[in-house]
Amino acid sequence: MRIALLTYSTKPRGGVVHTLALAEALARQGADVTVWSLGRGGDDAFFRKVDPAVTVRIVPFAARDGEDVGDRILRSITVLGDAFRHGDYDIVHAQDCISANAVGTCIRTIHHLDQFTTPALAACHERAVVEPTARICVSAAVAAEVRDGWGLEPTVIPNGVDSARFEQAATDVAARRRWAEELGEYVLAVGGIEPRKGSLDLVEAHARLAVRRPDLRLVFAGGETLFDYRDYRAEFDRRCDELGVRPLILGTVADDELPSLVAQATVFAFLSTKEGFGLAAMEALAAGVPVVARDLPVLREVFGNAVTFASTHTEMADALGAPTDAERRERGHALARAHSWDDAACAHLDFYAEHARAS
């Protein structure tokens, strides 16, 4: 079976991480897998090495001065679509709105649903939900949103987690010491400064926490995005100044350094306002780090009693500063280990075979 997985970027965003891990797991099951993506900013490879059993196709995508977000997304669709050839594959599986629009007839994984105010982007989002021939969601909560919004019935296949990688990082004393010496004790958030990640709420919570834990630093890692969050970042900076919060913003962290950064964290903050699964939080659980998550139905579904949920800034602060719960830590380990990429790949192969029979 010749499978094409398509994603929109080579950078370390959640959907891209998912695509590469799934591709490698499919290849371990004997599938012939090719990953397609746009090479933004001159990239000719992904943010990490990819198993050579997976074929990689990077389509050049040059930056244009003065291009707004909407035009860049529409051009992304055109460039990727012009390069891709359907006839080379038995299964075409798009992992996001851009690639689903680019290739047309496909299977689509809907990680989460977005809301766009620009008519052209709203139309792209709509097409990427309704036009695929079949849909996968990584959680039942997102599948329910699709069912309620469009009357469609996606199949739920949860994410896998590279649990062993983050468990090993927890035992890497030298790598963890480097972060401890540089950062001290810290609250970690992964995903950059953006509305969907609840970055402003984390600043508000940290300001309350700092009253009793002034030694506990606030650290952000990651942040690659297609969207323009300058106004949100300006509000973030303004509020940090007002509250006296001095976060350390690391930007994109090298893939081989991220597990030890996560493993050394005192607590992992996962205050997203919208998620499909929560892979970064699951990786933190694998590393034995307590997680504080926003109280969302999808996160209740995925994490159950393995994390601490909070809704208000005060609740968030209290949870971030709470002592480590050994029983919860063990539940987190067990939950992360239960999510295997090989299991996810087998479920995808079954789905592909059924889809091929029905087509």
Results as ranks from 00 to 15, higher is better:
L250W: 05
R127V: 11
G30R: 02
D256H: 15
T133D: 05
L26F: 14
G30N: 00
S272Y: 12
R13W: 07
G332S: 07
A353N: 03
L296K: 08
D215L: 05
A234C: 09
S311H: 10
D71Y: 02
R64V: 10
G70K: 04
A45G: 12
A169P: 05
A62L: 10
D228A: 13
A164E: 10
L183E: 12
F303V: 01
V190F: 05
I98R: 14
H348W: 05
D295W: 13
G81V: 01
T34D: 04
V35H: 08
T55M: 09
R108C: 07
G87D: 07
W36V: 03
Y8P: 04
D237C: 14
L226F: 15
V307T: 14
H111E: 07
I193A: 10
A310T: 13
L299K: 07
Q115P: 00
L248C: 04
R178D: 06
R238M: 04
G244A: 01
L5V: 01
D32P: 00
G223P: 02
A25W: 15
A344G: 04
S260Q: 05
D295R: 15
A284F: 07
D343M: 09
G192C: 05
A169H: 01
A100K: 12
R294S: 15
A221S: 14
A164M: 11
H125Q: 15
V79L: 10
A122E: 02
A347K: 02
V129M: 09
I157H: 13
R165E: 10
L271Y: 12
G223V: 06
T324K: 05
D201A: 15
A174L: 03
A100M: 11
G15I: 04
R230M: 06
A338K: 06
D228Y: 13
D96P: 10
G160F: 15
D51N: 00
L216F: 08
A23E: 09
R165K: 05
A336G: 12
D51Y: 09
Y89Q: 02
V267R: 15
L243G: 00
R328A: 04
C124L: 14
I58L: 11
Y186G: 01
I58P: 01
E275T: 00
R85G: 00
R176M: 15
V146P: 06
A269E: 00
A334M: 02
A63Y: 12
P52T: 00
I91G: 08
V245T: 03
A306I: 03
Q95E: 11
P52V: 03
V142K: 14
C137W: 05
Y232M: 07
A175D: 06
T308Y: 05
E194Y: 07
R2L: 02
Q264C: 14
D318V: 13
A234P: 05
A134G: 13
G222S: 01
L271T: 11
D82H: 08
L216V: 11
R75N: 09
F277W: 09
A180H: 13
H333V: 02
G192S: 03
A334S: 07
D32F: 15
Q29I: 01
S340A: 04
F116E: 07
R233P: 09
G244L: 03
K274M: 08
R147E: 15
R75A: 03
L226I: 10
A94F: 10
A358I: 12
L80A: 08
D172C: 11
L226Y: 11
T109N: 01
D350P: 00
V79Q: 03
L335Y: 06
S311K: 05
G39A: 04
Y352G: 02
D231P: 08
A334V: 02
